[in-house]
Amino acid sequence: MSDHHDDLPAFCHPVSTKLLFGVFFGLIALTILTVATSALGSALGMPPAFAFPLAMVIATMKAFLVCAFFMHMWWDKSFNVLAFLSSLLFVTLFIGMTMMDTGEYQPTIEAFDVNNLANVEVSE
């Protein structure tokens, strides 16, 4: 997809303006789509549980377009791509592990008697 200029060094891949503008208009279209689905989704009978995943799918499509073409990942060294994608793996781990732990103190919270606070010792 990049322009082919014989006189350019091997590491220089200018992306064609056509492609860049195409990606830009694609991003704008997806932005409008995500605002529209958020504004009209419930009116059109879309189940509310569906709205959040849909917004995230659209955001990920936009992120793909930006990464692949604006950030030249499509033509980049695979090691760079690997480094970048590995960060996403760690983010997933970070969020996942924390989420697994959130219920840890739930029994204590539920056992907490709001109406009988006199019995609760205040540590401060």
Binding site: D76, K77, F79, N80, A83, F84, S86, S87, L88, F90, V91, F94, I95, T98, M99, T102
Partner: peptide, 24 residues
């Protein structure tokens, strides 16, 4: 280029703390 990609990785991890707070 490798250097800037590694920097971007740290940036993502930096922001991810806030995303964790949000998700939680």
């Amino acid at each position: 280029k490798l250097g800037i990609w590694l920097f971007l990785v740290t940036e993502i991890l930096f922001f991810s703390g806030l995303f964790v707070a949000y998700t939680l």
